[in-house]
Design a protein around this nucleic acid. Structure first.
Lengths: 343, 343
DNA sequence: TTTTAGCACTCTCGCATAAAGAGTGCTAAA
DNA sequence: TTTAGCACTCTTTATGCGAGAGTGCTAAAA
């Protein structure tokens, strides 16, 4: 563990580097942060901190910048906790006031708020509907052979699928089948609706034997679609180009094309996130090379204590962690409230 | 009008500039394109072309680059028409094979194909549902006071809205109201469903007088929502950073943040597009300053001769117009077919 | 009259050199 | 243990210079 003075110096260096993106020298520390020791002493301490792996030097005669280990120590022990200012408060509060009617809207809105307030890229994953319960399923006829299968969950998400209707079914058949499906499936968690459950329905409705297989298979398929609706809401990626980290076009391009690879993002966020806490993955802590120079901050959002999705922020490792934490915390807090008031 | 030789030279310069992004000198023209005259003569012609406004010079001792007027002339008169190669053909054909079940999917897919093949940003606007016909409307109860209103058009688009259901309505009331709405509204174009039409329904169903107003207002509102579903599908904007035009981060940032301003994009595309032709708006031909350095190529896509939306490409003014035209033409051609086979 | 060769001129780009500035590490004194 | 002093390193910025590319003009050739 570092002693008091080293921590003070490390903290000052990281704060300054986050603010300026320039390597920090001993003189700067002595001048700006009044620790009461001379640059020479600070230099010695800095050499120690470098040897311990918390700092590094871009070249011999430059100042120091934090290493990933340095950021990690900062986030875990040094980072000041921070209150939201009035502006941030008011923007976040509006989230709850918007009174969105559907979950997706709300989630998208939350993403926009996060990217607006932090200037980093907001990523939201979800809603993950495995643990949601089926509220309603209905088949409506549109044409002779074409129908609409509608699946509503208790989280107020609706998904619809255009399906083919077997020839010989009348409207009242469809209604009866819908009713039967509802009475046996409504209230069940999506993840619990397995092939077995489906089979037991078949036994109850032997009258429709010939067509039911077909419809149940369709329903199963559509439920799967609904479940794995792992949508990625990304917002504010163009703002990232304002950071000096992306002054190099090649880097900017890499970042932007990474943002278009939703599978990589989903994997990285899921790996990073422990839903109940706010977690940070700093640079090379992330196992995939695409994220080496980036940090990911994530936390889960919930409904009825079930993890519904992940709120995340992707930015350069030189990130204003303190600000990001405070904002992300508050936004998910409000998002949780907004979601439960939606149901 | 330009004489034969000037056109040859202008054409050579623009072709070369589109390929290399470097100013072209008289020697290059003489060497690469065998027009059979010496650099000195070409120089004279180039000076003329500059005076006429078709070319410009970045600085005194540089080669020439095309002006907007030059590009315009090129697109209107000089541009070679071009056949698609096998690769392009096969990618586009897959569009039709995909057999998407819904219009939105299809449109999104078309956007991806365009951006993949051109490397420019694809923008698709639509579907515009004003002229679509209502195929089905239904209200389903989800809870005591909560229901789902579903609107299906003859273009197979589905939109749903969670609504509040007046207390005193039974399920069979809902069904009866749904039926009544269907029989009086189904088959009508969305744009023809006006307040007057709604009022005449009220007359037919005086029994529900007290709640009907409320539901009809909701329906009206939701129909409006459905109509103005002016979604922007943008795809491939990160690829644009590969072009030397965006080697400057500031420009790249401007471009990317423009791509996030969907209202500006909608306005620009709508202004630019004459649905029945493929149209180009080059640089400052676009009235809004944000697009000064960009060109927009657009064309409409249709269903049953009704304009359903706009397919467009946004790229630097130094765009491979010939390639873009051929691809855009073919994609909308296939898109039109795919849409009509969807119905 | 049109085309071309020749040539002086202009401007950019790359490169080397130099000076300035920032910061370090080491040594020796406080 | 801390600090002042100093030599040293490395980057950044400015400057100058030559090479290269391209032009416009003039005068000769076709």
């Amino acid at each position: 563990m570092l002693d008091e003075r080293k921590m003070k110096i490390l903290s000052a260096i990281i704060d300054d580097y986050i603010a300026t993106a320039e390597p920090i020298g001993s003189r700067t520390i002595a001048r700006k942060y009044h620790i009461g020791i001379s640059p020479a002493t600070i230099r010695n301490e800095m050499a120690d901190l470098e040897e311990l792996g918390y700092l590094s030097q871009p070249h011999t005669s430059a100042g120091r910048i934090p290493s990933n280990k340095g950021y990690r120590f900062y986030v875990d022990f040094l980072m000041p906790s921070r209150k939201l200012d009035d502006y941030e408060q008011s923007i976040i509060k509006r989230l709850l006031k918007k009174r969105a009617k559907e979950l997706e809207e709300l989630i998208e809105e939350a993403g926009k708020v996060i990217s607006k307030l932090t200037s980093y890229t907001a990523i939201i994953l979800g809603p993950q509907l495995e643990s949601s319960r089926l509220k309603h399923v209905q088949i409506i006829r549109l044409e002779e052979k074409k129908g609409l299968m509608i699946i509503v969950t208790n989280y107020s998400t609706v998904s619809h699928h255009i399906i083919e209707i077997p020839q010989n079914l009348t409207d009242s058949d469809l209604q009866r089948i819908s009713n039967a499906l509802n009475s046996s499936l409504a209230g069940k968690a999506l993840e619990d609706i397995t092939q077995d459950v489906m089979n037991s329905i078949k036994d109850d409705m032997i009258e429709y034997d010939n067509v039911l297989n077909f419809l149940l298979d369709l329903l199963m398929e559509n439920l799967d679609d609904t479940k794995e609706n792992n949508r990625v809401y990304a917002s504010g990626s163009s703002k990232m180009l304002e950071f000096p980290e992306f002054r190099d076009v090649e880097r900017a391009r890499n970042f932007l094309s990474l943002m278009e690879k939703h599978d990589l993002i989903i994997r990285a966020l899921k790996t990073s996130c422990k839903p109940n806490n706010i977690t940070v993955t700093i640079g090379s802590e992330n196992p995939w090379s695409e994220f080496q120079e980036l940090s990911i901050v994530t936390t889960g959002f919930f409904v009825e204590d079930k993890n519904l999705g992940i709120c995340g922020i992707i930015g350069p490792t030189r990130m204003e962690y303190s600000r990001v934490f405070s904002i992300l915390e508050k936004v998910t807090d409000y998002l949780n409230k907004a979601i439960s008031s939606l149901l």
